[in-house]
Every structure is written in C-alpha cells, then in structure tokens.
Design a protein around this nucleic acid. Structure first.
Length: 786
DNA sequence: GAGTTTGAAACT
DNA sequence: CAGTTTCAAACTC
C-alpha cells in the first residue's frame, strides 16, 4: 500500500534525525512498573497509530528508485543508563558500492555478504558524537559497520555496549525534491536502509570505513526494516530487532511476497542473491512498530503489539535504575531517521548528543511501514532536536509522551543543491510555533483513526507544504466513550493523551502546560542543541474532560489553580493531579506535582491507580443517549447540601443526581422546585451579569464616542459644546481677567468678601463671553451649512 | 481574608 | 465494606 505519495517521498529531508532510545532497567525502580510498558502487561496503555497495521513490520524501503532518499532507522536501547545516540554525519554519495555489513559485537552478526564501501554513505551513530571517540572506538573494538551500496542500508549495533555503530548510507544520488534524476540513473542500486536497534547506552561511534566487513547485497533489493520493540524487562538481555530488508530493484520485478523474517539478534542476510531480504532484529514479544496507512503513527505499548510506535522522548533522569519503556522504533525513509526513545518515570534522563552531530540532524522523522514489493507506508514525523522534543507524562499512563515540535521537513526541497552528497546539515529544523503541534489521537485498536486537525505550519523557512510535516504527538489510546472530543476544537498546544487510569481509556486532553513545563524542564533534552529555536508554544490549559464537560468546555476555561498544602498535590484531593495535570501557576505549597518530583509523582499515580484503577477517569460519564444522560460514574454522597451546591459533584457538573447517588435529601432532580428555583436564580443572575456587562460596554462606548465627538476641532465650531471653546488661550485670558479683577479690588481696598464677589462676577462674565462665542460659532456653522 | 461547611479521598 | 480522618474546595461572614 502506498500511503505516501511519491511527491511526499521526494519531500523527505535528507537530513538524518538523531535518535535516541533509552530503555531502562525496570529492576532498579519499583515505581517504574507503573510507568513503563511491560511486555505483556495489560495495564499498560496502548499507544496506537491512527490506523493499526496488520503487520508489525516496519519497513523502510524506498521504492525501487534509486533516487529515494536513504533512510535510517535507529533505535537504541540502553540498560539503565541514558543513551545518547547521535548521528554525527551522514554523507551520501552517489557511489553505488554494494554491500553492507554488519558486524556488531559477537552477538550480532550479519552473515550476508556486503560489499564494502568506503567512507561514503556513512552514518555514524555515536553516543559521544565526537569524531575522536568514534575513531577510538573503531580502533579499539569491534565496530559495527554496515555498509551498503548505494541507497542501502546501515545497520547498527544492537544491545551491545561499547560497540560503535556505523551506518553507511549508500547514496541515492539525489535528494528528494532535488535533482532526482541523477540518482535514477542507477536503477539497480539497492535502496538503502538503515536500522539501528536496541543499542545500549554504551554505543560507541564508529566511523564506517572501507575496511569493515561487508556483506554483499544484491543490488536491486528492496529492504524492509522491521524492528521489534524491546521488552523493558530484558535490560541486560540482548535486544532483538527485526529488520526486514526487501530488495527491490526498479528494473526488476520486486517480489511481492515478504521474505521470511529472521528473528533474533543476529542480522543475517542469507542469500545475497535473493532479492527480498529480511533481517530481523527483534524481540519476539512486542513489536512496537507499525505502519499506518493513514500516515499516522501510533504507539501502543502493550496491548496492541502490532502497532508502530514512534516516540522520541528524553528520559528524565540520569538515573540508571530507570525503567525504560521499550518503545523505541526507528525507521528511516529517504535519508530520514526516525528515532524513538522512551524513558520511564524515574529520574529524568538527560540525553545529550554531541553538538557536532546534532547540527547535521534533521528534525524529521519518517516512519515507513512497509510493504514488500515497493509498497510503502510512510509516516513522517518532524522531529526537532532537543528543544523540540518534549516529554509529557500523564498520570496513570505508563508512557512518557513526547511532544514534537513542528519542524519543517522541506529542507530537502529547498536544497536544490547537491544531489550527490546530501548533508544532513542542510536543513535546519524549523521550530514552529507550538501551537501548531499536531497530535495523533490515541485510538482504541478497533476504532477508526482520529486525528487532530492539522494546523498550518508557520515556520519561516523551508516549509514543506505537505501536512505530514506537522508535528504529531503519539499517545496511547484509552476508551473513554464519553470523551470523544472534537479534536478540531482543541486548541493548539493541547495534547491528547490517555487518561490516566489505564485500561479502557478513551481520550484525554492533556493540557499544553505539560508541554510548557517540559519545555522549561532541563531534563527534556534530546539531541544536542543544534541551535534550533526552542519552541515557544502557547500554553493552553486544556483540561481533561472531566465532569462531563465537553472538550471545548474543558479547554475553554482555564483550570483553577489549586491550593493544596498538605497533599503535596499528589493525591486526588488536588484537582490538578486528579486531572492528570501538572501544577502550574497554582498556589499550592510543597508541590510535588511537577517534573522535578517525577518519581514521587509517578509513585503517587501508581498508588492511586492501585487503589482505584478508575481514579483518573472522568467522573462524569456520557450517557447512551446523549448529554442529557450524563451522569456521575459513582454518584454523590451528599448529606447536607441537598445536592444543590457545588459541594455536590453532580451539581457541580451541572447534571442531576441519578439512582446511583447515595445522597440524602437530594434536591437535584428534574422536578425539584428548589432546583428549578435555583436554576432560575442562576439564570437570572447570569442574565443580570450579562446585562450589566452589556450596559458597561455600551456606556463605555458612549463615553468614548462622546469624547471623540467633543474633542475640539479646528475645522469648525459646528456641534461643538461651549466648554470646548475653553482653550488654553481662553483659559489664560480668563485667568488674567480674574487676576486683574483681584488687583483692582485690592487697589480699591475692597473687603475680602467684596473682592471675591468682584472676581466671581468677572468669572461669570468670562463664561458668558465664552458661551456667547460658542453660540455664535455654532450659528455661523449652521448658516454655512445651510 | 478568615473561618466554616461540605463531601470526596484517604485511611483504619 | 464501614467508620473515621484528612483534605481542599465551596461557602459564609
């Protein structure tokens, strides 16, 4: 299936996005369990793409055209330690050297022969990002280098610490959007695919050089990379990735059948001759990657294993004990690298990529799921580097969500330049206003995709018109039927996230403040800063659609700041916490509901969920027949308020008590006269307020208008009020008259009372003269007009 | 703004 | 599950 149009493919940026995947070791922290996706854990919130894919395979395969941009997919899994993977450089040359190799540490081996290509087409992933380090690693150890022929693939070390990863990207010869024709000249050049998975934190950069082992690949091969998600629990265990490469040559008929996938750590390409090839690096259980036809990416950690998850998150702590959710999926299409990293709760992990590398990295992620035989699914996710990736934590959810700042994918387009060499650097990611954030909507597996209406990007330069460049946030889906937000109504910056509570969550709106906090958080650092402007998103405070409020309602009103003093904002007493929000601009004391106390917060979330799995679900459910049937999920227990005060959750939600309520003396029912009276009073009060507001507005308008109209005008005296004639000069003259009159009284030795009388009398005369003048001017004006 | 009331959440 | 305590919001003055 072609999800992505060829044009879109052409738009794919040449740059490679730095990717990092962190996997935590679950063992160290007890808290982590709640947060991370565990392989077979049902409780985890599934993150799904809008459209679930049937296959779990992620294929990064370009169509047969050699012009396809190379794609690199990298995923690294660390064991507890934060991993920094940086792609320092990616050079693509037109050389069509066949072959790629992969030699990783002993565990991973590529048996398939590859021709070794020199330094060309190399992508280096290194933790440190220093070239020196890479060199050292190279010399010292067993560098893993995968070289492929033109447009071919790179593979990376997986799960081996200390193993340098070198990716060599065969050059396609043309950048997307740029002169592609040049690349087409080599039809047989196999398309390049890069897959790096499961690398541990200790990945050492290795520069792929000619000397490395190479397995020869058949030219004209279509390669599909499949990466399976790593189970978080297997921290020490080698990560298995599935990389499927399907080789397809343009000229040759690509086999439509998918080649057998080889699972295991070992990358093998057995028969070089065989056109389709599959390399599997994956763990058997979970594959987090899926392709979505709708160009949507979904992350479903647990429940829907067959889904593609693309998330890049910086994990908050440097703490090695963190668990990491193995969501990392990297797929690269066309010279794009998708990096997914997810960390678990725990302390924030800082991901640092070398400056050098980050510069060259493009913030675009592309996910391709693929079909064999040239079918392509592509999901392009613009990723921004460090400032652009932001972590979002939702209570109850076991995932950290990443907010992707919009980046322009079009950079490649703008680059008319060099087909032969596409430097990753060329396109600098444009950080678009955060308001343009686009999110993918969590979806229940069976549900149709939902997506937030894309918002036009406003980035200044290098913007591709394609909508796919927009940012998206991927989140787990949960079934909250009552919350079927109209996503189009969401404000920019609003993030959709699973309602905490897991299980059956439908949709939840996560306030953009999360993003804000994330932005502000030092922990959220993805790739090294490439000088990208930090996203300065508008922070809309959207609330979870609690209390039966529609999303629009929830988003339209700002959340009230809490005033918690004793709960540390980590109990459901705190509305912020209960709504799955971080405290922001609150009046609370000793607040732990923030990123700085993520560990405690996650623990508290877990505690709440243990106590009540529905704790974070909206209390007001939507009835079957519409809003009128909205009712409190548990019912209220009011005793003294008659359910006619805001103490009552039903009344507060503007719904009537139902049979499940246990309230005493309830007056909050349809026929209740008290309720009707209250409603009338409320309505009357509201009307009164509105009227007052309108009156004030009108009065203000009138005053303004009056002032405008009465402003002295030089042009004519028509319509001018008498006082408008009291100009400065007139005033001065009047004062002089009065002073003169005072002097006169003084000279004549008048009494004080008489002096005052004389002055006042003079003042009266002055006024009369002013008024007379005004009347005369008005008459003149009238006569003129007539 | 301080104090009181209220009922959900938390605890036993 | 019931009773009690804690807590923060709602409310009153």
């Amino acid at each position: 299936m072609d999800v992505v149009s060829p044009e879109l493919n052409s738009l794919l940026p040449d740059e490679i996005m730095d990717t990092e995947a962190i996997e935590d070791v679950p063992q160290s922290q007890p808290d982590e369990t709640a947060v991370q996706s565990e392989p077979s854990d049902d409780t985890s919130v599934p993150m799904e793409t809008d459209t679930p894919l049937a296959s779990e395979n992620l294929s990064l395969c370009s169509d047969a055209t050699s012009t396809e941009p190379t794609q690199a997919l990298t995923t690294s899994a660390t064991t507890g330690n934060p991993i920094a993977v940086s792609i320092s450089t990616a050079t693509i040359t037109t050389d069509s050297v066949t072959g790629t190799i992969v030699s990783t540490s002993g565990l991973q081996k590529l048996t398939a022969p590859f021709t070794i290509s020199p330094a060309n087409h190399q992508i280096i992933l290194n933790k440190v990002a220093s070239s020196q380090a890479t060199e050292a690693a190279k010399s010292a150890g067993t560098p893993q280098v995968i070289k492929q022929e033109g447009q071919k693939l790179l593979v990376t070390a997986i799960g081996k610490s200390g193993q340098p990863i070198v990716l060599q990207l065969p050059h396609t010869g043309s950048k997307p959007g740029a002169s592609q024709t040049s690349g087409d000249t080599k039809p047989q050049t196999p398309q390049f695919k890069v897959v790096t998975l499961g690398a541990r934190s200790e990945l050492k950069p290795v520069v792929g050089s000619a000397g490395n082992q190479v397995t020869t690949l058949q030219p004209q091969q279509l390669k599909t990379v499949q990466i399976a998600k790593k189970t978080p629990t297997s921290s020490a265990a080698p990560i298995k990735f599935i990389i499927t490469k399907t080789v397809n040559s343009k000229g040759l008929s690509s086999p439509t059948s998918v080649p057998p996938v080889i699972a295991g750590r070992v990358l093998t390409q057995t028969s070089p001759v065989m056109p389709p090839r599959t390399i599997t690096l994956s763990e058997p259980h979970n594959t987090s990657i899926q392709s979505i036809a709708g160009k949507k990416i979904a992350i479903s950690p647990l429940k829907t294993p067959s889904k593609v998850t693309v998330v890049s998150v910086a994990s908050p702590t440097s703490n090695a004990s963190q668990k990491s959710v193995a969501l990392p999926v990297n797929v690269a299409l066309g010279q794009q690298i998708l990096t997914v990293q997810q960390s678990t709760s725990g302390s924030p992990v800082k991901l640092a990529t070398s400056q050098t590398t980050t510069q060259n990295i493009k913030p675009v992620q592309s996910l391709a799921v693929g079909g064999v035989g040239g079918s392509q699914f592509k999901t392009i996710i613009p990723l921004a580097t460090q400032p652009n990736v932001q972590q979002i934590q939702v209570p109850g959810s076991k995932f950290h969500y990443v907010r992707l700042v919009t980046a322009t994918t079009a950079s490649s387009i703008g680059q008319a330049s060099g087909p032969s060499t596409s430097s990753i650097q060329t396109a600098k990611p444009m950080v678009v206003n955060t308001g343009a954030v686009r999110m993918s909507v969590p979806i229940v597996p069976a549900q149709p995709m939902k997506q937030v209406a894309p918002k036009p990007l406003t980035s200044a330069a290098q913007i591709v018109t394609t909508t796919q460049t927009q940012q998206r946030l991927i989140m787990p889906a949960t079934p909250l039927p009552q919350i079927q937000p109209n996503f189009t109504n969401l404000r920019p910056g609003t993030v959709l996230a699973p309602a905490p509570g897991g299980g059956n969550v439908g949709y939840a709106v996560v306030p953009a403040q999360y993003v804000t906090q994330l932005q502000q958080s030092p922990f959220v650092t993805l790739a090294g800063s490439s000088g990208f402007p930090a996203s300065t998103g508008v922070q809309t405070q959207a609330r979870l659609p609690l209390n039966g409020l529609s999303t629009a309602e929830a988003t339209s009103r700002p959340r009230k700041p809490c005033n918690c003093t004793k709960s540390q904002c980590l109990k459901l007493y705190c509305d912020c916490f209960a709504n799955g929000e971080f405290c922001n601009n609150c009046n609370c004391n000793n607040c732990f509901n923030n990123l700085e106390h993520e560990t405690e917060r996650l623990k508290a979330i877990k505690t709440c969920l243990d106590r009540n799995p529905e704790a974070f679900k909206p209390k007001i459910g939507k009835g079957k027949e519409g809003e009128s049937d909205r009712r409190h999920s548990k019912g209220c227990n009011c005793k003294r308020s008659g359910c006619l005060k805001n103490y009552c959750e039903c009344y507060e939600a503007k719904i009537m008590c139902s049979s499940i309520c246990k309230c005493i003396g309830c007056k909050n029912f349809e026929e209740s006269p008290e309720r009707k009276t209250l409603m009338h009073l409320a309505d009357a009060a509201e009307v009164r307020v509105q009227q007052q507001t309108a009156a004030k507005t009108k009065l203000s308008s009138q005053i303004s208008d009056l002032l405008m109209r009465t402003t002295p005008v030089n042009s004519s005296g028509g319509g001018r009020l008498p006082y408008t004639f009291v100009t400065k000069e007139v005033l001065e003259a009047t004062c002089e008259c009065l002073v003169e009159q005072a002097k006169k009284a003084e000279q004549t030795f008048q009494s004080q009372a008489e002096a005052e009388r004389m002055i006042l009398e003079e003042f009266g005369h002055c006024l009369m003269r002013i008024i007379s003048s005004a009347g005369k001017a008005k008459a003149d004006s009238a006569s003129i007009s007539c």
